[in-house]
Amino acid sequence: EKYGLGREALPEEINAWTVEVFPDGKNLPEGSGSVADGEKIFGDNCAACHGDFAEGVDNWPKLAGGDGTLADKDPVKTVGSYWPYLSTVWDYAHRSMPFGNAQTLTVDETYAIVAYILYSNYLVDDDFVLTKDNFLDVEMPNADGFIVDNRDEVEVPKFSEAACMSDCKTDVQITKKATILDVTPDEGNGEDTAAADTSAETDTAQSDTAQTDTAEAPAQDAPAAAEEAKAEAAPAESLSADPELVAAGEKVFKKCKACHQVGDGAKNRVGPVLNGLIGRQAGTVDGFKYSSAMTQHGEDGLVWTEQTVEEYLADPKGYIPKNRMSFAGLKDPEDVKAVLAYIESQGG
């Protein structure tokens, strides 16, 4: 029975959303990218989380290495050691990366990034250029490493025997205890308090091994020069005095918080903490790995003020070429003002 509901999808609409790439290369667009180009694009867009050599930063996924570890305790699962299809890498990078700025990579940039990830796994040489035409020639080391779920044959018969009800075993001993590890979060605030020195693996997309996030260095005191600049730059009345502006800024900050934290307990994430932003010399948050472009701008005297933040956010890549922030920017000065009000209200 048909209800006659909905309307026919237009070809342009189908094309816009049908972006998945199949293992046989179906839906892969024409294009190409070299390892050399990929190294630069990866550095700008991916390295903040995945490391310059795709080795992974903190708990973010490792994309390279792990060769031959799958049968070990705590295998290292990367594109090189685990992923069976190259199409999946292309599809995911093009569709869902960079994290917080998805669907901004061009087709050629995606080819280049995939080429660089292959290079990082020693699967291609440094002069390799990945194209639609040679895509299927790349051999994935673990392509034959998968079997279809066989629980019905291997497990279900064994686990379908009548359950024992009495005298099922003797001498019951405790063999393992959770308190030895003590990695349970404190219930009071939902934050974990204990150091987790454990190798348990989780399913989570961003983590292959569970471990403590160690990057907790607080923002260092700003250099003297910046302190002076702060005194000069400080507006007569602080932006955060306006609660409506702060509230508007909190909404704008949603665009930022995928990568930046601010406030009590803020840590460096994909981007540096924004505590103490106004008046700070660019590129100086302790423990954060900046692009050389950002560090250089700071050393050349760039200090974050309402005006410089506004200029920067209007066109991040134009204002500081080769910096790592993969964010299109905030075009409306009112948005910048609001977000600064919010950041300031949080200790920025």
Partner: peptide
């Protein structure tokens, strides 16, 4: 409740 050490970020967690 969240277990902070499981993931790099609560956005993907």
């Amino acid at each position: 409740r969240n277990v902070g050490w499981l993931t790099a970020d609560t956005i993907s967690s």
